[in-house]
Design a binder for these strands. Structure first.
Lengths: 386, 386
DNA sequence: TAAGTTTGTATATTGACCAAACTAAGTTTA
DNA sequence: TAAACTTAGTTTGGTCAATATACAAACTTA
């Protein structure tokens, strides 16, 4: 039995976290506002705010507007008290960025890669991290951590168990990067990272139960339930791409048959295209010129995506389904068929009120997601330590 | 923002709950043991135990064995401090039971019903509750609540939105029963109730992430994540029976096509049977006499169940999948095909370590589940009130 | 200018857990 | 068989965080 005992330190830690979270979400805000919002006593808020001020995570600014009495001292989140590094390892690129503690991008680097071997990729990653740290502005806490999104199955220890498109298996990526930079490192599946990014900074900010569908070369999903990323027993939930939507259907690279991603991914699209050298971009270009064949192709993929989304809605009863990753560029032709498929298939009660949206952060979802994760850990641990 | 502030009362409530939970799980147990297990100070435990003693939820028994010093006073959970009523409304029966606070069945009543109209069913339910309360032994708290499992979609307010097999829609069942008996009432979907029953009292006791598949006339599922029932935004998650496993497949009563339950439920079985008047029981009887046709039929259903279970494992990465409800009687012929389907389809990493089991509580899963739910609420609220 | 309002701080109190001393009731050992 | 040791549980006094209350500071309004 994993038991947690409760004592005054826990109380203080949680209240402090609550106060800081309130400042982050509502800044600029006065002590009096915080007391009103949280229900904590004015004196308690005052004391906690002073603690956080000493930690440099917030700062005071000149007095705000009076509402008939003494003017309030406004509190702001010190979003440049430190910086987070977010990295998205794709199949043919590495995207890295430096963000402040609110997820604003300060520096962004994107490097195409051809050699996906582990050593080659980590060389690129390491070099990028080094240069980001060099270019980073001075701050109280410096780099607070490194987050990395990977297109594959990652366990809770940060080991990449299997990344078919990179040809990786059983790679202790977290340990490797941690040893080099002596900073907290966090590895996440690309879809989970994207889900978290959209939840914190993109389309999902006002929802608690979200399924993020990463529709790229394959299909993955990030599952956010009750506002938190659900990871499954071992951390590898969300392989929705390998849900069977056609029993005894087409062979899938995973060894199974009829998997969703065989019908609804970028790979599926390219395989169905009549042109030998079709790419997602070339098909989009054709569709933009009203090429009926290309449009029909996208619509077919849209229906297949819709089938899978139907399954998601019936299974999870989420508030929101977000479609992300590469296929978002074809939103224009996909959205209609997806919606129509849902309308004709999904249970009416489940359909009602569910939001279907496309990614708001486009190619940045995953990198911003891991970066936001890093920030969250930093803030939680910072507060814990005291 | 729904904020929770932390103070000493919260600390005490949680620690008290922790102590009581420890006693329930480990009884008989001494104060010293509890201090050791929970990490709380001996003095704190003593004080909390005395509080709980006053509430009559536990009692002391004669001293236990010495381990080289003073003999401990053993503490026991007072499982007869009150009783819970659990009811399972089926399509052609109402099963009701009185349980003690540990989920032991004291009285059990089962009544077949023909008329599924709301009024007729609630008359039966009310009559059963009345007689259970009359037969209930004397106790400190009496009947602590009523739980009802229903084969349909239930929202978080206890309204039965839609129960196709009962022909019910939009029925405020909770309100109705609450008004009659002035007791806390709780309504749950039958699959959710079954999942909770197996988790607390049956096959799932040592697991945290469990999917319970209720394979009966239709298919439903209860989803337990991180040890808690996941209900979705509106409380109607788990309609896994309407996940599409065959795009453009057979028509389903829900209006969609190719739903899992069209291929893997009791209804699917009976539809495929050559006999006009086949029932699940008659087919089991045939299979027991080694009738090859009947056995082949079950095996076919088994493969279809396996497809859906594959989808569950890939999507949720659970620790355990439990198959429950009526089809469990055919376990002997279903288990092989299900396992084989998983082995040939499910992602290897996800397959590893996942447990496939059949219900341990047989027909009692749902009724025991709601009853356990009632007990949990009683204990939590009792402790809250002080 | 005086009265009323709002913000934020200071002080004393409350109540929870905890450490340590203590009482109670055994076992072990010489 | 008595002294030494062990273990269980209670009592006492202390600490810490939140709170209620009073109050000072700063502003608005009539």
């Amino acid at each position: 039995m994993q038991t947690i005992t409760w004592n005054q330190q826990v109380v203080k830690r949680n209240n402090k976290s609550l106060v800081l979270q309130t400042i982050i979400e509502k800044e600029p805000v006065s002590r009096a506002d915080i007391a009103q919002i949280t229900g904590l006593n004015k004196a308690t808020v005052s004391s906690l705010v002073n603690d956080i001020l000493e930690e440099n995570l917030i700062f005071e600014s000149g007095p705000g507007e009076s509402s008939g009495g003494r003017r309030p001292v406004l509190l702001h989140f010190n979003k440049t008290a430190g910086y987070a590094i977010g990295i998205d390892i794709g199949v043919n690129y590495v995207l890295s960025m430096l963000t402040d503690l609110k997820g604003n991008i300060l520096i962004e680097k994107n490097q195409p890669i051809k050699n996906v071997a582990f050593d080659a990729v980590t060389d690129v990653v390491s070099e990028m991290i080094r240069s980001l740290i060099l270019e980073m502005p001075k701050s109280s806490y410096g780099a607070v951590g490194i987050g990395i999104g990977v297109p594959g199955i990652v366990d809770k220890q940060g080991t990449v168990l299997f990344a078919p498109n990179l040809n990786w298996s059983n790679i202790s990526l977290k340990q490797h990067i941690e040893e080099e930079f002596k900073l907290p490192v966090l590895i996440e599946n690309e879809a989970n990272a994207g889900a978290y990014g959209e939840k914190q900074l993109g389309a999902g900010q006002s929802f608690q139960d979200i399924i993020y569908v990463s529709a790229g070369i394959g299909i993955g999903a990030g599952i956010i339930l009750n506002g938190e990323l659900y990871q499954g027993k071992n951390g590898y939930s969300g392989e929705l791409g390998h849900v069977i939507i056609q029993a005894n259907g087409k062979k899938c690279s995973c060894g199974s048959q009829g998997c969703w991603e065989v019908y609804a991914s970028e790979n599926a699209l390219l395989e169905m295209a009549p042109q030998q050298d079709a790419t997602l971009e070339s098909l989009v270009a054709l569709a933009e010129q009203n090429d009926p064949e290309a449009i029909a192709l996208f619509e077919k993929i849209g229906v297949s995506i819709g089938i899978g989304v139907n399954n998601i809605i019936n299974a999870f009863n989420p508030e929101q389904v977000i479609i992300g990753n590469r296929l978002v560029v074809a939103k224009q032709w996909l959205e209609g068929p997806i919606l129509e498929t849902i309308q004709t298939h999904t249970l009416p009660f489940h359909q009602k009120e569910v939001q279907l949206q496309f990614s708001q952060l486009s190619v940045y979802s995953a990198a911003l997601g891991v970066s936001a994760f890093v920030v969250e850990n930093f803030i939680r641990d910072g507060i814990t330590v005291l």
